[in-house]
Write a protein that binds this DNA or RNA. Structure first.
Length: 558
RNA sequence: UGGGCCGUAGCCAAGCGGUAAGGCAGCGGGUUUUGAUCCCGUCAUGCGAAGGUUCGAAUCCUUCCGGCCCAGCCA
């Protein structure tokens, strides 16, 4: 497992941390946290955040907590908690100590809220949500004070306790921080910090019927956990003054520094939990782990490796500019990994029968081929050769263009790991469809160049009688448009051929031993992995992770 | 039109007053029993624009232009 990892690149957050360390802030500690809300599956965007937070902890010999930001029980569930833990582990990271939950601190949040009320910095407000919106003002106009803003401290205390005891309806009252209704920053206009919700929480059951809001709970959780750098995405930039206000007002010992970075956008991809959920709910894909999904679970099932995702995250960098990364970058990361680590094999996706007329019927030869062209330590595999073979229909053309160097009438081609053959005859069936090719082989070309001529083309093949029928699922991008995320309706940009199932592909027999987790390069086709869900030992199913780069396809387009 | 951010090549991204790193993609070439990989070369007289300061500006100042985010009792 010696990955030739070069040092991960620096970024503006590391510059800040370097400065903090130099100034001896936080006793030289670096402590981050990854704080997902368990309300959906993690996706590539989260991978960026995970790699950033855990990566920084690693690089500075610090710690990174996994903390579930579970303050909104209505949308959360343990199913998500489980999947998130698994995904973080799969990516190769280890969180500090036990898993944390914001809900672990519900009592402390409550006590701090009482302290806020006692110091006159919070009040119970009886405005309905609609009224509260009106009182909030607009982007250009200041808000108005709530009629309850100057309620007596004692009364606030009693009301807040009654809220906790479940004496009121959902939404009847809220607890609000007393900040500034005329602030140009809307987040500072007396934000709600507690709401009444008589619902069961996946961690705390029916212990509570009031739940804290993100802005209030998040900063306190960070402070309780002695986090030093609280990294979040750009949309929270406007919330930073509030983050600081709570910690300052509560005179918390620890005051983590919030730093915002740009979330990941990928073209041809949707990365919004809501839209991903729609895709799953509408059956556009087969589930959260469908290999076309940009979820960690989807990428895993598609055949992406944890290392490739980590390298991708290193490659895209961390900045504050709102950018769109090319999907090609992700594909490069997995090709790069698998090129050096995936053993090679041959698999014919669209079989076309070839009869080697000068090869004796019933004879078999067992040829040897390297599992990897540059890594002999991966060993060799045996490949049977016989009179009847399959090649791919795409590797034969009756009237080829000039630069086509595969098989054509009276032309020669190299069978990968085997002999050079020449196409002598084309046999067609009804409708003029090519049904079979009659070829002759040159028995002096095994491991040798043919004499007196050059054969440029090399194609893959498999022996008919030895072939292993397998199912191959060819996955492609889910969307045809670069920005399916723009606008509300992504349906029109769905790629109808994002999955093409090949029921009877013919694989070389050595593949029969493949097990879950096996990854291969099917030579001249792409990288494939055994499907972790549907593949059976007697009925292997391969998922195409990514195709090989194909400069012939480009040439054809010209 | 209030507030907060962001503009460096097709995309991502270094750069922090001394004369534009790197990666992806592209293009050209070499090696090759994978049209893959690998290797070599090429790709911003230019840093959103215009002014200014300076011997010297992507870096400092001014103005303008463009983009993103914020009016949930979501996170």
């Amino acid at each position: 497992m010696s990955e030739s990892d070069t040092a991960p690149p620096s970024n503006f957050i590391k510059h800040i941390i370097d400065g903090d360390l130099k100034a001896q802030k936080n006793e030289g500690r670096v402590h981050t946290r990854f704080p997902p809300e368990p309300n959906g599956y993690l996706h590539v965007g989260h991978a960026k955040s995970i790699c950033l937070n855990f990566g920084i902890a690693e690089q500075y010999s610090g710690l990174c907590n996994l903390r579930f930001d579970d303050t909104n029980p209505e949308k959360e569930s343990v199913e998500y908690v489980k999947s998130i833990k698994r995904d973080v582990e799969w990516l190769g990271y280890e969180w500090a100590g036990e898993v944390h939950y914001a809900s672990d601190y519900f009592q402390q949040f409550y006590d701090y809220a009482v302290a806020l009320i006692t110091s006159g910095k919070a009040y119970v407000c009886g405005l309905t949500p609609e009224q509260a919106r009106e009182y909030r003002g607009t982007l250009t106009e200041p808000g108005k004070n709530s009629p309850d803003r100057d309620r007596e401290i004692e009364e606030n205390l009693v009301l807040f306790q009654r809220m906790k005891q479940g004496e009121f309806e959902d939404g009847q009252y809220s607890l609000r921080a007393k900040v500034d209704m005329s602030s140009p920053n809307i987040n500072m206009r007396d934000p709600v910090i507690y709401r009444i919700r008589s619902v069961i929480h996946h961690q705390t059951g029916d212990d509570w019927c009031i739940y804290p809001m993100y802005d209030y709970a998040h900063c306190i959780s960070d402070a309780i956990e002695k986090v030093t750098h609280s990294l979040c995405t750009l949309e929270f930039e406007d919330h930073r003054p509030l983050y600081d206000w709570f910690l300052d007002t509560l005179e918390m010992e620890s005051h983590p520094q919030q730093i915002e970075f740009a979330r990941l956008n990928l073209n041809y991809t949707v990365t919004s939990k809501r839209k991903l959920k729609t895709i799953v709910d509408e059956g556009l894909v087969l589930g959260w782990d469908d290999p076309r999904m940009p979820t960690i679970a989807g990428l895993r099932r598609r055949g992406y490796t944890p290392a490739s995702i980590r390298h991708f995250c290193d490659a895209i960098g961390v900045t504050k500019s709102d950018s769109v990364v090319d999907l090609g970058m992700l594909e490069f990361a997995i090709r790069d990994d698998l090129d050096s680590n995936a053993p090679r094999a041959m698999c014919v996706l669209a079989p076309l029968k070839v009869v080697i007329t000068n090869f004796p019927d019933g004879k078999e030869e067992f040829l040897q081929a390297s599992r990897h062209p540059k890594n002999e330590s991966m060993g060799k595999r045996g490949i049977p050769f016989s009179r009847e073979l399959y090649i791919d229909r795409n590797d034969f053309m009756e009237s080829p263009p000039s630069k086509y160097f595969r098989l054509a009438p009276n032309k020669e081609v190299r069978l990968r790991n085997a002999y050079v053959i020449k196409c002598d005859e084309v046999i067609k069936g009804a409708g003029g469809v090519v049904q079979e090719l009659r070829c002759s082989y040159d028995d002096k070309t095994l491991g040798k160049k043919p004499e007196g001529r050059k054969v440029k083309g090399v194609i893959h093949w498999v022996s008919v009688q030895h072939a292993l029928p397998v199912e191959v699922r060819l996955y492609d991008r889910l969307f045809n448009e670069e920005s399916p995320d723009k606008g509300d309706d992504f349906h029109s940009s769905i790629n109808e051929s994002s999955l093409v199932v090949v029921k009877n592909a013919m694989a070389e027999p050595s593949l029969a031993k493949s097990t879950k987790g096996s990854r291969y390069q099917f030579e001249r086709e792409g990288y494939f992995c055994i499907d972790s869900v549907d593949s059976m030992p007697n009925r292997l199913i391969f998922n195409r992770t990514v195709s090989l780069k194909d400069s012939w396809a480009k040439e054809k387009k010209k």
